[in-house]
Design a protein around this nucleic acid. Sequence first.
DNA 1: CCTACCGATCGGTAGG
DNA 2: CCTACCGATCGGTAGG
Lengths: 194, 194
Amino acid sequence: METITTLSRKEQVIRNAAELFREKGYAASSMRDLAQKMGIEAASLYSHIRSKEEILQHLCFDMAAEFRKSLDEVEKQKLPASEKLRKGIVGHIKVMAKDLIASAVFMNEHRHLSQPYLREFLLLRINYINRFKDIIEEGIQSGEFKETIDKKLAVMTLFSSLNWMPQWYDPHNNIVPDDLGQQLSDMLVNGLKK
Amino acid sequence: METITTLSRKEQVIRNAAELFREKGYAASSMRDLAQKMGIEAASLYSHIRSKEEILQHLCFDMAAEFRKSLDEVEKQKLPASEKLRKGIVGHIKVMAKDLIASAVFMNEHRHLSQPYLREFLLLRINYINRFKDIIEEGIQSGEFKETIDKKLAVMTLFSSLNWMPQWYDPHNNIVPDDLGQQLSDMLVNGLKK
DNA sequence: CCTACCGATCGGTAGG
DNA sequence: CCTACCGATCGGTAGG
């Protein structure tokens, strides 16, 4: 099953830029590299985008919005914390899997955003992380999780594990996002021990 | 307890570069930035180092050597897998804690290494990861860990969690490396559930 | 460690 | 989308 979408020229620029930024990093990617990749002159890019950074802003904030939407869906539901955690994880992985390239850029290149965009981005991120932290907190309150767990460590472990996935997860060769999310939440909730 | 060390001028250059690279990224850091930070002219840097990349090579390979040494120590010991895992984690965190700045650069900037250094670095890294994977495998064989766990996911979760620590771990405000490692391995081995 | 400088490349604009 | 071009900045060298 393939979804055929016609991308606007601007979207094509952003897509090609995402691939380039992931490969070489934002700062090391030049507009001339990008133009060459698309078979046009560097100056022509500016018919579609205002600046190099505008591309990065699109990539970072569009992904952030997707992640937020996914977690919104989960929080609407009345579920035990462990189940909410699982659904939150699966949702996150699904969003990533839809665009692993943009996800990698989101994770690795956001720091090249200038102010006030960087500040805004960081706020979105801390907010997202805190919502996961709240789910863990909820699980402790309800007695589902141990009181002794370090919430910050737990949520950072989860978050870094999710963030790192675009580096190794290949949806074509590996398990499907639902199963991967299930496995990850199983591991975090139940541990490795028999 | 403070350790006072006199750094050679070359080491000072590398130290200042590490701070700069962590803040702005390798590609976005110029030799003029670095020189200014040290109060000298850019051209003067080249009395101490051959090139910008030489600095990055030092940072990446010195850290890699430290990580390897730490894991060597653990593997020498005859211990159950869970204990080996714990000691491996604690060792890794201790190495990072000794130089969080270099650790962050090691993790985020290694991709700007040129060939053949990049290839060599990636080999060292995959080797290191595989040694952790072997410990997990060992735990499955011995019956300590579940047979159903996804080894790749487990080791990637561990590794990304360790790699991400320099972004949030502050040894001055947080728990000591030994306790942090203990908590992380507890969480991975026993899970969040009561 | 400095002055003086190199060729290359950068993001971006003007004008069509 | 192109040609022609801008000023700024890059990593690095020569020679002291």
